[in-house]
Design a protein around this nucleic acid. Structure first.
Lengths: 209, 209, 209, 209
DNA sequence: GATGAATGAGTATTCATTCAT
DNA sequence: TATGAATGAATACTCATTCAT
């Protein structure tokens, strides 16, 4: 499957020209990825063993190592893939927005949409376990928000009194906690309320239209 | 010592009526607590072994278990104690505030003050390692913020459009990430800027004075 | 190929009457043998995996087991074949020699010649990895030398004071270590010096001519 | 014990001032060393697992690692200790000998004496398993023999026609194989015959007295 | 109370071997 | 015949925890 679920992946083609062995290999790899996503989301990197993942995937313990060099490699692949998809989704959404308030709204929509459709990936990406991949993503997310804020301050859209560094960390922290809280079952509030509230919190700092 | 460093702890009394054995026991326990705080703050619950803690405390490996039933018990005690101290500090600070904007300001001051004086405890309390104690504290923190917000909405201090549940999670997430970011060396921004910014972010949602 | 490179092996015949399949099978088997020789000579029986051998031979891992029952069987076949070739060479050389001193000289020439032309086989045959095949060859080599000595003592060519059992072990040990040392790159001494010295060492025990 | 059996080692003192724990630790370490020697002598470095050694020593698997960092460390310690003892014994024996023929005789006596009293250590030291410690010892043994030969050639005690490099390898190989053969049960020849024969083999190359 | 040696279950990882394609 | 994915037993090593001294 690769982590993505998009229709154009090779394994989805009706006419898969690869050998039966190659298809079987890919299927096993996918099962390991899927099991890894489920277990990492539930118990975190350290709470899961390669044997757990293999058992969940229905393969022998040694099979894990035919597909991934070790547990970290699997985690890395999952996290990098999730990060790319989230980043792509947010960038797509915000690329058309010209005004800050529009950008903020669509960014929130993209984040919430990703969370709604990828609960497990969200947990993996946003759970801050010591020194893992997600952290880097959140750091770069912070930096991009800080940059956006600084530009907004230059153009006068945002008041200068609010420190961009602090705000960018604050917004990332807000997204992390709110979305991790929201992807529980049952969802504590409706998607609309969530988007609306997260947008308002940010807009309240902008100058009125 | 007990985790607190305040003067009224038993071991600090000049007139300690306990036996020499009891005082020695307490001292050993304190060294284990101190070592635990340092190491947990640096490497997290899973990154530290009981041998590490005993070695850092200068005692034998078995001694650890004379004072704590296991590694989680030590972590729990550190976290609960830290939680109580932080909770107490925030409650003291906010007990006199009558207006919401005042309460918000002193609450931020209390949080930042705690972070400044207890970097290691803050890291332990705010680091979200899979299923550990800190989470419970943050949950109850969220609940108390949500309650405050609901009251502010009733009294008309806050607009009703903003969902109190979402906001309370957002604020906790914000505090967590901003303070963990801030207690690094070197501190990214001054204490004053930090307090001011965190206060403004919250106030921006209130009705203008 | 079979391990030997001599012209009369089936696969070398210009007029190979076997089917294409049979010839292909033989070629695969030969590649596995060649790879096994190279890798066993370099890293020893335990330092090589069947996957290594298959990869070096350019075949799939499972193919190995179509040709050899297991890793030891391949090693055994290589060792037995090498042993036969070395034995044959020595016997050919010594069959014409009537006097002991001639026999010794041509035997040394045969051993050194084999070592020079089959470095890898020599390493495999003479390396004493716990309980492997080479040992049996060396044991039987010892026995044949001991038998020769005993005859030489009977005919008066060798003095009786020297124990034939000890000497035969000594000579084998000498050949093993000296030849393993000599087949390194670069060769520590010239082929002539080597032959001359090994011959003299043995002749020194015989009665002067 | 340390591998040595000499009377002056601390653990042999009637008045052992160390704590019971320290004595117990030493005893366990000694059992592991003893088990290691027995098993390495029998099956070689690669034929033995740390579990085997622990079981033979009557301790749990993990205990092994309280005393040695890994299997190689134990092997190294055994080999280095054995090497030192053998080297010391040979040096002691040859230090007084002024004439080459005397030196050769006492050297052989020392080697055979060591072999007789330390069959297992001899097997460990003289078994050439890929890249292990014993090899280094044998190499340095060769070098020292070669040096001795070169001096003997200079002083006219040995004829110059025999290459010292080849001879030194030959002698080491001879000692290795003969002694490994001799330390079997039952001993193939008497100690006297062995010493006499090994001495004669070497002396046969010297000029007659 | 303190010590620290010992335990043994847990986890990662390798590799000879099998078997469906 | 050849492939190569999969197996699972073997092995190394760690570490929370116990207990005799």
């Amino acid at each position: 499957m690769s982590v993505t679920t998009q229709a154009e992946t090779p394994s989805d083609r009706g006419s898969d020209r690869r050998s039966a062995g190659a298809r079987s290999r890919e299927a096993t790899r996918d099962r390991l990825l899927t099991s890894g996503i489920r277990l990492f989301a539930k118990d975190g990197l350290n709470g899961v063993t390669t044997h757990d993942i293999a058992r969940e995937a229905g393969v022998a313990a040694g099979t894990f190592y035919l597909h991934f060099s070790d547990k970290n490699a699997l985690f890395h692949e999952i996290a990098v893939d999730a990060e790319e998809r989230l980043r792509h989704r947010v960038e797509q959404a915000t690329s058309d927005a010209t005004r800050l308030r529009d950008a903020i709204h669509v960014q929130v929509e993209a984040l919430v949409g990703f969370a709604a459709e990828n609960r497990e990936l969200l947990r993996i990406l946003f759970s801050a376990e010591a020194g893992h991949e997600g952290s880097e993503f959140l750091d770069s997310f912070s930096r991009s928000i800080a940059e956006g804020r600084r530009q907004a301050i230059e153009t006068g859209e945002m008041p200068a009194e609010i420190d961009a560094g602090v705000v960018s960390q604050a917004l990332v922290g807000m997204f992390v906690r709110v979305l991790l809280w929201w992807v529980q079952e049952p969802e504590p509030v409706s998607r609309e309320t969530l988007i609306d509230t997260l947008t308002r919190i940010q807009l309240s700092g902008t100058h009125p239209e």
